[in-house]
Design a protein around this nucleic acid. Structure first.
Lengths: 244, 244
DNA sequence: GCCGTTCCTTGCGCTCCCGCAAGGAACATG
DNA sequence: CATGTTCCTTGCGGGAGCGCAAGGAACGGC
């Protein structure tokens, strides 16, 4: 049944995995009845890799929650330069334009791996918050954390050289999407990640990232691969991030 | 009476300028009674230039609103490098640590000019939000906007060269703190602003900022001065910000 | 299995910008 | 007015990292 729905791309409320949703911090203090009422107004969508959930600049009519998979949120500048604003992990809200007080989406979330999202029309937000202020508080915390991450990134970009910034970015990815490697030693990043991606996260070029990874690999700190990254020596990486 | 209170540094609720507070978007939808109740739990403080409202890392027990003046929020890295995270303008909330889900303040707000703030103990927040969800929504929007600004800055730092970044920063300051100059031509920044400050906002050095300002001055775009900046040709500055 | 596409690597030259250094101007303080 | 402090300016040299370029490796589609 799930598979059939997936083929269509859209799917009914009944298919949404309750236990998964229930475990999210966002809904921690929400009563079962409330949650059910909220899910009743939701829709589910499957996003194949490389596809966008919505496009930057598009009118914001819905907000979203990532259930499975991984999204890279990109922004494109007037000159066509692209950057990755953040990575959306399972359980994260995104496409939250109205909270940012704008009526269009500021970025484009692209599926790095096969992903499943649920979405609500914008109007749902207000009506739900009214009955459940706790959700608003939770959402605010989420945005607050995101703000903190942004400030961290600004600080790093202002004061650190490229190697440290890249090391920090890799450590962050490791914490958010690390997975113990099947082949024994090390932790790998759990979704396809190109050198270009890392460059766009750290404000550098894919060339520099490639050179760094090569250098690190020769020291046994990481092991690269096409769209893959395996971290073998976290301590050394942390040392690099702190500037030796 | 106001002056006497100022001398002490702390002041009573009665002194708070109601019409000023009333006009803030944050309280737009709040009933007079609610506002009065909220102000009843507030305290007022005067901050002389150069002094901090609180220190980075300090336990967060209060949140704040800037009434008059101007604050530069700085963060110091482990290596002692300083950056300016943002500038607080009159009407802005700050010291909002609990919304960021942390119990210490992430930065240090330093008065650039003589400033007046009002502050509340953290507990007030929860009790007020409960009775007035609208305030939570407003606060979330504020944080959302701040997040957007942070992303803009990240994008600029990733993709633009120093000159464009500095031009953008100056334009932003102009919009937020610009004031028609008394001596006729141009708009000046309404608080003391050093080259070092601008450097810390844009992730460069005071040397580079100084060189840029000199170059711009020789083209008649701006006019510098000790802790002063006068913008004479906004159009040219915008052109620079867009990359000629 | 072949071919096209995407992704990665590495060398080389160049440029933007930092860091050092030294001097000068504005302002505060007694 | 004298002295110290903060802030600004400018020259010079060096280096981190970008951009170009060219080649190679992994993957997917037919």
């Amino acid at each position: 049944m799930y598979l059939r729905a997936s083929e269509v791309g859209d799917s009914s409320v009944a298919d949404i995995d309750r236990s998964l949703v229930r475990s999210l911090p966002l809904f921690a203090n929400m009563a079962d009845v409330e949650l059910e009422r909220m899910l009743a107004r939701a829709a589910m969508r499957r996003i194949p890799p490389g596809e966008a959930v919505f496009e930057q600049g598009q009118k914001a009519t819905q907000f979203f929650l990532l259930l499975h998979g991984r999204l890279k949120v990109t922004q494109v500048t007037a000159e066509g330069q692209q950057i990755i604003v953040r990575v959306v992990h399972p359980g994260d809200l995104f496409g939250f334009a109205q909270a940012l007080q704008r009526d269009d989406y500021p970025g484009t979330p692209i599926a790095a791996a096969e992903s499943v999202v649920i979405c609500w029309p914008n109007e749902v937000w207000a009506s739900i918050v009214e009955q459940n202020p706790n959700l608003a508080v939770n959402a605010m915390r989420t945005i607050g954390q995101r703000l903190q991450e942004a400030h961290t990134r600004i600080r790093e970009m202002s004061t650190e050289e490229v190697e440290r910034r890249v090391a920090h970015a890799v450590l962050r990815l490791m914490d958010q999407a690390g997975r113990r490697d099947a082949d024994g030693d090390g932790v790998h990043i759990d979704f396809p990640l190109t050198r270009q991606d890392v460059a766009e996260m750290t404000g550098t070029t894919l060339h520099t990232v490639s050179r760094l990874f090569s250098a690190w690999e020769s020291q046994g700190i990481v092991k690269g691969g096409r769209q893959k990254l395996l971290i073998r020596d976290r301590a050394r990486l942390e040392a690099l991030a702190e500037g030796q």
